[in-house]
Each structure stands twice: as structure tokens, then as C-alpha cells.
Nucleic acid binder design. Structure first.
Length: 745
DNA sequence: CTAATCTCAGTTTTT
DNA sequence: CTGAGATTAG
């Protein structure tokens, strides 16, 4: 027991050894959060306060769940049979499989991922003859998911405007469609599981009695429904150990409710609130800067990180003339770091939005620095994989219309829009699945359709006796997918991926025998379990590990990771903070938390950079540098001057250096702190256009006085973004709008 | 029915 | 500038 608790600080130890009641742990960035969580579980079991089967731990990502399992196993090398560790969705799936009848689901129910859900909705809109322009499928999807995440069924949604009323009806129709098809979307997994517990006192009592300890990771990211589910599961007696950091809440945009932390404190009668404020990751200056930044947010639960490490290096701030030069500077710094002995995979390049990666990648490729982009398409989301899975899904459940639509004419077998329209109508009239309608229709209407139905029959029959990997192999061959891709120019990669799918099935079957995982899904078939696995765990973003490479990713993707050196790029108003979040205070605070997360990823070296002009949407635009730079304490910073001449002479193409330099007029920089920062390292006043400059106060005949915040475009097309205060921000073409320099008050 | 061409919007993302 | 989705020509 003592070794479990050795080398922990007093707060960590206190958290780990708390009594059997609910507790809230405010765990700052780099404070050993995962360690506390896993050690708590190991300690509870080792001291025989609970058996493994009485513990439930929930995370947001599969990666986190796996890591937790591994670390507990390292701390406590005993059989953990019966412990429930997984994602919210994974655990709900598990529960629904065990009680599928009470949950009113078919035993073989399948899970729709977001893309599947969207195509299901598009199909629904079409069959109801609803204008997709007026009701964009994406918005309907958002509406439905939001309702579900509030725990609401169609009858419970308040709809006061025509749009919402229509959405409610679509929600109801969509629900009927899902029920008929035997499919559930992600939000449905949670809601169904919640309802199962809420309505069925026996089942609810069973789980409440069983799970004496419930542990929640990243609690600040829970949404309303997840919180309600936890409450239902814990009952009155369960001890919920919630670990989170309100300062790292960056998912409000998808429904996360930081307010859950306050509610939790009250509703679970939390007597133990422990703050983990000792940071084991970042050097002093980095932490000082991050602390100063986040202190600009209001409504915090309050927390300040400290470190025993020295001040370390100052945070470096760099302004470049163009995005291309920013990238070149980055490359030279990466080289320097590498020469100093920092491994490439310990260097992260972060950005606010994915679109920014392109320019960086371009430069990295041309300078020969190996890099790896995290994010983007994952294995099970690839088109060819989804096609193969669609055939497998149809074997399992012929009524799965989403899978049917995906497979029916891919590879092309002469079943076009016309036939499918007819099929859709037939199915809608008879209230049957597409497959059922197709069997009726096949004889008379289309021989092609008939052949497809027969193909499905054959696949089902032939895969019957096969083991899962063999069945997968058979399906990708007999469906014609391999043949189809063989004929395609760039089909080779896709064929490789399909072969990889067979390997994935093989690995999955083997893992099923693994003791840790085997407790799951005793009742379902291997195929059904594999399909659920494919939906719930979309697979790695990037398959090729191997060689050490610089890590490129969005700030969101970097959460939970740490690196020796971190570059945060594109620190410009409109980019970071993002344009769409600048308007309201809560959006801005989330952007600030995002910046905080980004900064606290760094151990020893932190670089913040911006460009005065950048290519965006095919146009060059100029922005002020980010307001977040103004919020950092001067003593923790080092403004690094770009050696303009040498950098520019090295610039290969792009980067019209001459015009850029010529335009750096020396303006008096009395108004803005931002400009002061810019002038300190020689970047000076931002770009001018038509004699106007960024930050200038101008007056407009209609909107009155405003401040220029950005330029975009060139020549006669040049437009300026002007913030007119209560009139909002407007883009005005300088050749048209008659702007006047405002006279000072 | 398919392939080529046009239009248009364009954060962040896990399950 | 890009990629998705719709529209139109073959």
C-alpha cells in the first residue's frame, strides 16, 4: 500500500485516499490528473474497500480509457475482471446490449456515426419531400442531437418558431425511422441508456448497488445528459469521484456544460473539493504566462498553478510579415531545437483551425523536415472501409437503410437515382425497409436490383459458418470492392486499407479472448461486436508511426498531451481568437481557455507567432495580432526580432517581401497595446491600404465611427473589416465605401 | 446512368 | 485556394 502512495504530493495523496463519498478534484494542467485517478482506483481495490466489479470509470476517448486500464494494471497486477472502464458511449452500448429488450432495441442494433446519421437524415428529408435548402440536414442533425443531449424527446422540446416546429417533427420521424431500421446514433446511446435506468427501477437498483465507486475523467466536458446519466447511475449511495479543470473546458461548442461542476458540488453534497495546483510539466515563465492569460476569464472556480522547476526560458513572441515567413522562421527554430538535442516528436506545432496546416506542411516538405499531422480522416471513416462495413452491416441487419444506400450501387451496378427514387417511395408507402421494398420491386422494375438482393443473400449465406476475419475477407472480395478499386488509378491504397480491415477483424477477435476485454458483450455475435467497435472507435488518425517527426495538430487535438517544445502559430485576431467567437463574451472566454490549453502543453520551450498578412480562402488578408498576446506578462516574454533581410532572401517564392516592407509605415502607436508589442520587435505598424491602416479610426456615412481591424484582397478588390461597435463588424470595399479618417475627439 | 462542370461556403470534434 | 454538392451534358 505504501508504494502506491509514495512520491505523491499531499494534495494528490489526500485526493486518492478520500473516504467513500463524492468528491470534486480540480486538477490543473500537468498536475498528475490521470495518476490520481488511476491510483485512486488501485488504492480502493488494494485496500479492499471495493472489488474491481464494483468500480466504474468513465472517460471521453477510447485512448484515455485504454491508458487508464493499462496504468491501473501496472499499479496493481491483479485480475481486474468485472471492472467497467470505458467511454460514456462504450459503457452505454454495453448496458444496452445487456438489456436490449427492456431498452426496446433489437439484439443486433447497430450504431450510426455522425456521417451515417447525416445521410439517414438526408434520406428522411427526401422521402418527406422537405426542402433541404430551408432545412439544411446539418442543422436538423444539430437540432436533434442538442435535444437528445438535453434528455428531451420530441414531445418535450419547446418549439416556438416554425423552423423549430418542423425540426421537432423531423426528430419524431427520424426516431421512427431509426427504430424501424434498428439503429441508434451516438446521442441515442446515452439517452436510451439513461431512460433505461430512469424507467426501470429494478435495473437501476441493480447498477446502483453494484457500482460503489464511479470515477469521471475530464468532468468539465460532460454534457447535460451525461451528467444526468451519472446521477441516475450513482443513485443516493454511490460515490462519484469527479476530476476536471474548468480552465480546460474547450468543448462548450458541442454541448459540454462546465456548469456541471458547480451543480455536482451542490447536488452530490461534495464535502471534499481538492485542488491540484502543483504543476509537474512546465517551466516557470511558461506557467506564469499561462496563469496571467487565464486570469482574464471571469466565472472561474479559481486555481493557480505553481511549479518547482526554475523559470526556464522565456516565452518567445515572433511576428512575421507573411504566413510563408512565419513557416520559414518555424523551420529554422525547429532545426535549432533539433541541434540542441530535442527529439522531433517532442516538438509540436499547434494551430487554431485545420486550414492552417497546409501552408506549414508545404514549408516542412520543401525543407525536408519530417512531420506528422494528427487529425483528419480516421481508419474506419475511410470511404472504402465504410463501404465494406455497409455490406457487413447488411448481413447482420438487412433493414439498415443507411448501409443499404451506401452499398446498393457501389461498386456501380447500374442502379441509379431513378430506381432508387422509386425504391424509396415504395418503402415509404409500405413503411418497410429499402431491402424489403427491393425484394418486392426487384422482379418487375429492375433486374439490377434483383442481382443486388441476390448478392446480399449469397454473402449472408456464405459468411454464415466463417470466422469473422474470413467473413470480412469474403465480403470484400465477393462484393466486387477489390475489383472496383483495382481498376481505379489511385485504388491501390484503398485495397491496402481493405486488407487492413481483415487484419483489424483478426486483431479484434484475438483481443476478445483477452481477459480484460472478454467481460464485454457475452451475448452478441463477433460480427455485431466488431461493427459496434468500428462505430465507437473510429481508429487512429494516422497509421504510420515509425520515424520521429514534428507533430502538427489543432489546439483541440493537443489537449491532454505534452511536448518539450510547442509552437502556437497564427496568433491573429479573427484566427485565434476565431472570428466567430469574438462576438460574445462566453465564446471569447472559451478561446482564451483554448489558448491556455495550448500554452500549458509546453515543458521547456514555448513560441508564439503571428503573421501580418496571410493567405486565407485564396485571398491575402491582414490582421491585428491576437489580443491574447497583450494579456501575457512582459517579464515572462522575449520578443524575438525576425532578421528580415536574411529571412526574406531565403524565402523561395511567395512572400512579396518588398511591398510588405515598403508598407510598414511608421505610424504613431499611441492607441493600441497590440501595436506596442508589434513595434517592439520591429514589425511595426500593420499593412496599409488606400492610405488606411489597421487600428485606424474611420467614419462612415451610415455606420458612424469604427476601427479598422483587418484588410483582405488586393488592388481595387481590397476590403477592410471595420468594427462599428453597436453596428457590428462590416467588410467594406475601400474603392466603394467612402471612409474618412475620423477626427480625434 | 455516369462523368464532367459549376457553384459556393469555409472553427474547433469525440463518440 | 480547396472540396463537397448540385447541375448539366453525353
Amino acid at each position: 500500500m505504501s508504494d502506491l502512495l509514495s512520491s505523491l504530493n499531499p494534495e494528490q495523496r489526500a485526493a486518492i485516499t478520500l473516504p467513500d463519498e463524492s468528491a470534486l478534484i480540480l486538477a490543473g494542467a500537468g498536475s498528475g490528473k490521470t495518476r490520481v485517478l488511476t491510483t485512486r482506483i488501485a488504492w480502493l481495490i488494494q485496500s479492499e474497500r471495493v472489488r474491481p466489479a464494483e468500480v466504474l470509470a468513465v472517460t471521453f476517448t477510447n485512448k484515455a480509457a485504454r491508458e487508464m486500464m493499462t496504468r491501473i494494471n501496472t499499479l496493481l497486477p491483479i485480475n481486474l475482471r468485472g471492472i467497467w472502464i470505458g467511454t460514456f458511449h462504450g459503457l452505454c452500448n454495453r448496458m444496452l446490449r445487456a438489456h436490449y429488450q427492456q431498452a426496446e432495441l433489437p439484439q443486433t442494433f447497430q450504431i450510426l456515426d455522425s456521417a451515417d446519421q447525416l445521410s439517414a437524415l438526408k434520406r428522411l428529408l427526401k422521402s418527406l419531400n422537405i426542402d433541404g435548402e430551408k432545412y439544411p440536414p446539418k442543422q436538423v442533425q444539430y437540432f436533434i442531437n442538442q435535444a437528445k443531449e438535453q434528455g428531451l424527446r420530441p414531445a418535450g422540446v419547446d418549439a416556438n418558431d416554425p423552423f423549430s416546429q418542423q425540426c421537432v417533427e423531423l426528430y419524431a420521424a427520424y426516431h421512427t425511422q431509426c427504430q424501424r431500421e434498428g439503429v441508434v446514433d451516438f446521442a441515442e446511446l446515452l439517452l436510451r441508456s439513461y431512460e433505461l435506468l430512469a424507467r426501470n427501477t429494478e435495473i437501476s437498483a441493480h447498477y446502483q448497488a453494484r457500482f460503489k465507486h464511479i470515477l469521471v475523467d475530464e468532468f468539465q466536458d460532460t454534457n447535460t445528459l451525461q451528467y444526468a446519466w451519472l446521477k441516475q447511475l450513482a443513485g443516493l449511495s454511490g460515490a462519484v469521484f469527479a476530476v476536471g479543470d474548468d480552465d480546460q473546458s474547450i468543448y462548450a461548442f458541442r454541448g459540454a456544460n462546465v456548469g456541471n461542476m458547480r451543480d455536482f458540488e451542490r447536488e452530490f453534497r461534495v464535502r471534499h473539493l481538492i485542488r491540484l495546483e502543483q504543476n509537474y510539466r512546465s517551466h516557470g515563465h511558461i506557467l506564469d504566462a499561462a496563469n496571467a492569460l487565464i486570469s482574464n476569464n471571469t466565472r472561474r472556480l479559481g486555481k493557480n498553478l505553481r511549479t518547482d522547476a526554475g523559470c526556464g526560458e522565456r516565452v518567445r513572441i515572433v511576428g512575421a510579415a507573411t504566413d510563408a515567413q512565419e513557416a520559414l522562421w518555424l523551420v529554422s527554430e525547429v532545426r535549432t531545437l533539433s541541434q540542441k538535442g530535442v527529439p522531433l516528436d517532442q516538438i509540436a506545432v499547434l494551430y487554431r483551425s485545420n486550414a492552417q496546416s497546409r501552408a506549414l506542411e508545404h514549408t516542412l516538405v520543401s525543407t525536408g523536415i519530417p512531420y506528422r499531422v494528427t487529425g483528419g480522416l480516421r481508419f474506419f471513416e475511410r470511404a472504402e472501409i465504410k463501404h465494406a462495413l455497409a455490406y457487413l452491416r447488411l448481413i447482420e441487419n438487412a433493414d439498415d437503410d443507411t448501409a443499404f444506400m451506401r452499398a446498393v450501387n457501389f461498386p456501380a451496378r447500374g442502379i441509379g437515382a431513378r430506381t432508387l427514387e422509386l425504391l424509396n417511395d415504395t418503402a415509404h408507402q409500405r413503411n418497410s425497409s429499402l431491402h424489403a421494398a427491393a425484394t418486392q420491386l426487384a422482379g418487375k422494375a429492375a433486374a439490377h436490383l434483383n442481382r443486388f438482393i441476390q448478392l446480399l443473400e449469397a454473402l449472408r449465406a456464405q459468411s454464415q459458418g466463417l470466422r469473422l476475419p474470413d467473413a470480412v475477407q469474403h465480403v470484400i472480395d465477393a462484393s466486387g470492392l477489390i475489383e472496383h478499386y483495382r481498376a481505379e488509378r489511385e485504388g491501390q491504397d484503398r485495397i491496402e486499407n481493405l486488407r487492413e480491415l481483415v487484419n483489424a477483424a483478426l486483431a479484434f477477435v484475438q483481443e476478445e479472448h483477452d481477459e480484460i476485454i472478454s467481460a464485454l458483450n457475452d451475448e452478441t455475435t463477433p460480427l455485431s461486436a466488431f461493427l459496434a467497435h468500428a462505430s465507437l472507435e473510429a481508429g487512429d488518425n494516422q497509421a504510420h508511426a515509425g520515424q520521429a517527426a514534428v507533430q502538427l495538430m489543432t489546439v483541440h487535438a493537443a489537449k491532454g498531451l505534452e511536448f518539450t517544445a510547442v509552437f502556437i502559430t497564427g496568433l491573429e485576431e479573427g484566427l485565434f481568437p476565431h472570428q466567430n467567437s469574438i462576438l460574445d463574451a462566453s465564446g471569447l472566454e472559451e478561446e482564451r481557455r483554448l489558448m491556455y490549453v495550448a500554452m500549458t502543453r509546453a515543458r521547456a520551450h514555448l513560441y508564439l507567432s503571428f503573421a501580418q498578412s496571410r493567405m486565407l480562402h485564396g485571398q491575402s488578408r491582414s490582421n491585428l495580432c491576437s489580443r491574447f498576446l497583450d494579456e501575457l506578462p512582459e517579464q515572462a516574454l522575449k520578443h524575438q526580432a525576425l532578421n528580415r533581410t536574411s529571412e526574406m532572401s531565403r524565402a523561395p517564392r511567395h512572400g512579396a517581401p518588398r511591398t510588405a516592407r515598403a508598407s510598414w509605415t511608421q505610424q504613431a502607436s499611441s492607441q493600441s497595446v497590440t501595436r506596442r508589442i508589434q513595434s517592439e520587435f520591429g514589425a511595426r505598424q500593420s499593412k496599409t491600404a488606400f492610405g488606411f491602416y489597421i487600428g485606424q479610426t474611420v467614419s462612415h456615412a451610415v455606420f458612424g465611427n469604427g476601427t479598422i481591424t483587418a484588410f483582405e484582397g488586393n488592388g481595387a478588390d481590397t476590403r477592410a473589416q471595420v468594427n462599428f461597435g453597436r453596428h457590428g463588424a462590416k467588410w467594406l470595399a475601400l474603392s466603394i465605401a467612402k471612409l474618412q479618417p475620423a477626427t480625434s475627439r
